[in-house]
């Protein structure tokens, strides 16, 4: 696996004010603020010297105080990788702009992230649950997740918040 060179990383950093990375690591991830991340991803994809045209992996991680969105980008032309991470500080109400405008193929993965992690994507064409039931009111991949209890009420399946054990 090849990674971006130090010079290229430096160049990206000089163009985007909020980009930061850890120099000591061999393959540092680019941390970028939410205000600039769409511009950064767009330039990573469209600049010929970078051409990261594939969104190889896309996910979110719950760090209890904040969320982190991870983009693993791959350039087919140069056979190179870069990781971009965006921190979402607001743990109670996480939201971020959708990247479906740049990579249309991120559609299902964003829906999955919304479904399991509870991150809302702005400007997403169809942000609905994809794996869990539509009326499920919890997000399973969060660290504070407690499974809901299924009950049949009047012939309908209803999900209840678990009763607290005292």
């Amino acid at each position: 696996m090849n990674y971006l060179s130090k010079e290229q990383l430096q160049k990206i950093k000089s163009q985007f004010a909020t980009v930061e990375y850890d120099d000591s690591q061999a393959e540092p991830a680019l941390y970028v603020a939410r205000s600039e991340f769409l511009d950064l991803l767009k330039s990573l994809k469209e600049k010929v010297s970078l051409s990261f045209d594939r969104l190889a992996n896309y996910t979110a991680v719950d760090y209890k105080d904040y969320f982190e969105i991870v983009y693993n980008l791959f350039s087919r032309r140069y056979n190179r990788w870069v990781t971009v991470k965006v921190k979402l500080e607001d743990h109670d109400n996480p939201e971020i702009e959708s990247v479906t405008g740049i990579w249309e193929g991120a559609n299902f993965e964003e829906r999955e992230t919304y479904d399991l992690m509870g991150i809302r994507f702005l400007n997403h064409p169809n942000l609905t649950r994809i794996l869990m039931p539509d009326d499920y009111d919890a997000f399973p991949l969060r660290k504070d997740f407690v499974p809901l209890e299924p009950k049949i009420e009047g012939g309908e399946l209803v999900w209840h918040k678990p009763s607290t054990i005292s």
């Binding site: 190889a56 996910t59 193929g105 299902f108 999955e112």
Partner: peptide, 15 residues
């Protein structure tokens, strides 16, 4: 592991 994410080809191809 603290978090595992699986990038599944079948899932993406269904788009």
């Amino acid at each position: 592991p603290y978090r595992v994410h699986i990038h599944r080809p079948s899932f993406i191809n269904l788009q």
